[in-house]
């Protein structure tokens, strides 16, 4: 039954199916929209807002917005990219991000996104410098929420895939922080094999595996080799996109 239709992203005609989000349609076409909170396999939630696009004139998060027939979407433009740089800058200033000493450096999606978006200049925003205690109680992982970007990936993975609820937020607004179901991580049911604790769930350096830090040499780390998002761009290649002018 699923009749496909077309959406127009920055002038390129992209095929979409009913029920697909804008991001899903673009991913399938090899067009990468930057994102931090969305990850393959978990329900999208639209919290980081880095995937903001203008859908028929209205700003929406591409990861949650259904694609609609003939929608005109603005994505890779100066104004959208400025918003994205502002958002990533906010996250970099909200937590403590001193990359050279961070175990996640090189595979961290926040850092990689900053590079991809060209965040290199200094800016006028202050640093908030959280001082939250480390949780090193668990034999397998250290939890350092001072780098948390509130993407909820660990919360959703634990809930949706592990059938547990190891993580949840407490507090609200700028006081919001990640908490665990117990006084410490060691009191929770987090264990080896949990999807929530696996590589690639926490996009930054909050959930750090004990005993094997800094094991990948510089030059061979995930984002040493390519920009974040290239795996999507390479999947089907942007070359097979037809621009409308070309049609």
């Amino acid at each position: 039954m699923s009749t496909t239709f077309t959406i127009h992203v920055d002038g390129a005609a992209i095929p979409a199916r009913p029920g697909q989000t804008i991001m899903e349609a673009c991913d399938a076409a090899g067009l990468y929209i930057p994102r931090l909170c969305d990850v393959e396999g978990l329900a999208p939630q639209g919290s980081c807002r880095v995937c903001t696009v203008r859908d028929n004139g209205r700003c929406v998060s591409a990861c949650t917005q259904p694609a609609m027939p003939e929608a005109v979407i603005e994505h890779d433009t100066e104004s959208m990219n400025r918003y994205r740089r502002d958002l990533v800058t906010m996250l970099l200033h909200e937590g403590n991000h001193l990359c050279p000493g961070c175990e996640a450096s090189g595979r961290c999606e926040l850092q990689a996104m900053a590079y991809r978006l060209g965040i290199t200049d200094s800016n006028r925003l202050p640093y908030l410098q959280p001082v939250r205690p480390l949780d090193a109680s668990h034999p397998l992982w250290v939890l350092d929420t001072n780098r948390c970007i509130f993407c909820s990936r660990c919360i959703r993975a634990s809930r949706e895939q592990d059938g547990k609820n190891v993580f949840e937020y407490v507090g609200r607004g700028i006081h919001k922080r990640l908490a665990v179901n117990g006084n410490h991580l060691a009191d929770t049911s987090a264990q080896e094999g949990d999807h929530a604790m696996s590589d690639g769930i926490c996009p930054v350096g909050c959930i750090i595996r004990k005993g094997e830090g800094f094991s990948t040499p510089i030059g061979q780390r995930r984002f040493d080799k390519h920009l974040i998002g290239e795996e999507i761009e390479n999947k089907s290649g942007r070359s097979d996109l037809s621009t409308e002018e070309a049609q």
């Binding site: 980081c48 502002d86 958002l87 909200e94 507090g171 609200r172 607004g173």
Partner: peptide
């Protein structure tokens, strides 16, 4: 607004603190 932001999304949670500052 800083006190009352729910904290779900980045621009409101963090951006309003910067605006206040």
């Amino acid at each position: 607004f800083v006190d009352e932001s729910c904290g779900y999304c980045t621009p409101c949670r963090v951006g309003n603190v910067f605006l206040l500052q």
